[in-house]
Amino acid sequence: MSALEAIATQAGSSGDADDTSTWVLGPVARGPWDAGSAHGGAPAALLARAAEALAAPGQRVSSLSYTFLGPVPVGEVELTARVIKSGSRFAVVHATLAAGGRTAMELRAVLLRRGSVPLPPGIGSPWPELPPPEGLEAIPSWFLPADATAFHPTAMEIRVIDGSLAEPAPKGRSAWLRLQVPVVAGETPSGAQRAVAAADFGNGLSTPVGFDGYLFVNCDLHVALHRDPAGEWIGLRSKTELDRAGTGLTTTELHDAAGRFGTASQTLFVDTR
């Protein structure tokens, strides 16, 4: 794939700091609401890549906690990432995306050593739950025309397991998602990158009220991975709970073909349109 088909292209370093670089989020990063703003999953994947790049040999990304401080623009952004707690067993990376003189997104990632721990029989075995994506139809569009260049449908393929995205899902909804473009041209997305790119769809998949009458914006995204996901497909089983105070919470089980590998949550700002 060409650089134009990737989520992000590096534009160079910024300033004298070794931990800061400049990137351009391409058209496929666009979200559904504003042509100039990215879908949260796109910059989340780029920040996950930055955290992985700082992992010591033998470490894996165990959790990623994002805070959305404002819209992330499609276009040039400044990425800063550094290790704030080093260690071979446990390390912490802090990363930010900034644009136009403001910080738009922040990440704190926990890295754990990849060990070999003997466990009793049956402990740690995967437990498959979701039916496979094969045989399910891809959703051609969601809020945008099918031929639009955006995170969905261009970069992310969605196959819904239960119900239609046109209807509310008071009991939650499950779907398989597949990242169809690289985060950075010439690189195969890691399992963690695929997981966070998909996890940000949880609140949209499982909203219990209609998009036409309500606004529910996730202010953060927390992803915890108890094992590395495998394969291209990421399964989401999401449920959203809302309160009359104008807040909500989406909780998502994350699956691959072998079963559940992690959990995601999103805190929501809720209001009427």
Results as ranks from 00 to 15, higher is better:
residue 1 M to A: 01
residue 2 S to A: 05
residue 2 S to E: 00
residue 2 S to I: 00
residue 4 L to P: 01
residue 5 E to D: 09
residue 7 I to G: 02
residue 8 A to S: 09
residue 9 T to K: 02
residue 9 T to M: 01
residue 17 A to W: 15
residue 22 T to W: 01
residue 24 V to L: 03
residue 38 A to H: 02
residue 39 H to W: 05
residue 43 P to N: 01
residue 45 A to K: 00
residue 46 L to W: 03
residue 47 L to A: 05
residue 52 E to V: 03
residue 54 L to C: 02
residue 55 A to L: 03
residue 57 P to M: 15
residue 58 G to E: 02
residue 61 V to L: 06
residue 61 V to C: 06
residue 63 S to T: 12
residue 65 S to M: 11
residue 68 F to W: 10
residue 71 P to E: 03
residue 81 A to D: 08
residue 83 V to T: 13
residue 84 I to N: 12
residue 89 R to I: 13
residue 95 A to R: 12
residue 98 A to F: 03
residue 104 A to G: 10
residue 104 A to C: 15
residue 106 E to V: 15
residue 106 E to H: 13
residue 109 A to H: 15
residue 112 L to K: 15
residue 112 L to M: 15
residue 113 R to W: 03
residue 116 S to G: 10
residue 117 V to C: 15
residue 118 P to A: 15
residue 121 P to L: 10
residue 123 I to T: 10
residue 125 S to P: 14
residue 127 W to L: 15
residue 132 P to V: 15
residue 134 E to Q: 14
residue 135 G to K: 09
residue 138 A to Y: 15
residue 140 P to H: 12
residue 144 L to H: 05
residue 145 P to N: 12
residue 145 P to R: 08
residue 152 H to D: 13
residue 154 T to L: 09
residue 160 V to K: 08
residue 160 V to A: 11
residue 161 I to Q: 14
residue 163 G to P: 02
residue 164 S to R: 09
residue 164 S to L: 06
residue 165 L to I: 10
residue 174 S to F: 10
residue 177 L to M: 09
residue 179 L to K: 04
residue 181 V to M: 12
residue 188 T to C: 14
residue 189 P to R: 12
residue 190 S to C: 14
residue 195 A to P: 10
residue 196 V to L: 14
residue 200 D to N: 07
residue 202 G to S: 07
residue 204 G to Q: 03
residue 206 S to Q: 12
residue 207 T to F: 04
residue 210 G to S: 02
residue 211 F to D: 08
residue 215 L to I: 04
residue 222 H to S: 07
residue 223 V to A: 07
residue 226 H to R: 11
residue 226 H to E: 06
residue 228 D to K: 01
residue 233 W to P: 00
residue 235 G to Y: 02
residue 235 G to D: 04
residue 239 K to H: 06
residue 245 A to G: 12
residue 249 L to T: 10
residue 257 A to S: 07
residue 259 G to C: 02
residue 262 G to I: 04
residue 264 A to G: 08
residue 266 Q to A: 09
residue 270 V to C: 12
residue 271 D to G: 09
